[in-house]
Design a protein around this nucleic acid. Sequence first.
DNA 1: TATTGTTATACTCTATAACTATA
DNA 2: TATAGTTATAGAGTATAACAATA
Lengths: 164, 164
Amino acid sequence: MSSNKGSSYSEPRTASTRRGPERFWDTTVAHDLAFLLARANALSLARMHAEIEPHGLKARSYSILSLAAAGMLPSQRELSEFLRLDPSQIVTLIDDLEQRGLVIRESDPRDRRANVVVATEEGHKLAEESRIAVMNSEAEWFSALPEEDQISLRRILGVLAAAR
Amino acid sequence: MSSNKGSSYSEPRTASTRRGPERFWDTTVAHDLAFLLARANALSLARMHAEIEPHGLKARSYSILSLAAAGMLPSQRELSEFLRLDPSQIVTLIDDLEQRGLVIRESDPRDRRANVVVATEEGHKLAEESRIAVMNSEAEWFSALPEEDQISLRRILGVLAAAR
DNA sequence: TATTGTTATACTCTATAACTATA
DNA sequence: TATAGTTATAGAGTATAACAATA
């Protein structure tokens, strides 16, 4: 299996006979925090989308609907900051939710420039349904981890996510 | 500060006087793993890009260049799987790196359909420079965490990232 | 003068399918 | 027949600037 005929170069051209991307896990990139975060997030997003797309939501619309349904009365500006999205993207997302009768925009009486996002009855129902779906799919994914690690991860990510 | 005049509704309309997105951290969405991962990843990406964009790289081109410079002789297909990108996106990324003289495509003698990506001398230099930049910016971000947590995080994310 | 939401626009990223050359 | 890479293209996501209403 190992045809090692004269490796006089600093980096062997024919290299090992092993193939497939698994071998990349030994490298420094693969231990990089940014890389690990990106990959874990990609996997998490894919799972979440598979779970809530049947409900007509994606990660972002789900977040907005959830905050509205939690009675937080978020303004669009607040959503923009919290979700790290441009204000114009928030407009589009809420347009969609509003057209589907899940939320409404109410003018904030304290500042008539601002809109406050409120969930309708339908919005509340969908928020609850999809919340359960998301939590189930998360629980499934995390079952690979010992409970102690699950708790640590949530706590540590909380610190990083809240930090600038 | 608290003008609580008759809250006969299940959800107060005028709510608390507190404003700003900080108050959303109490909600269930904010404790959601998917949300925390997404946000931590967004922050990590922003930092990383600020650091390596001056070098003409982004997260993805950095990963590819690093694997090439590590002498892994990755095929485009392997890169596609490892980075969870479509093969056609890999083409574009390598086209760019190759035009800038950082890598070359070599036909794999074992399978002439496949290309193997090899770093040039310039590629090695840039990979090393940017590796240091990335590690420094990461260290800075993580200094907010006790060392024990840094180690736990890397380990736990490694498990999640490697899992399906 | 500054801020909230909106519109328009250009740019990047992503997903898909069809094609070629090799296996 | 299946796979590696490529090309083309349409769709989604992102970033920017300008504008009206309000503070």
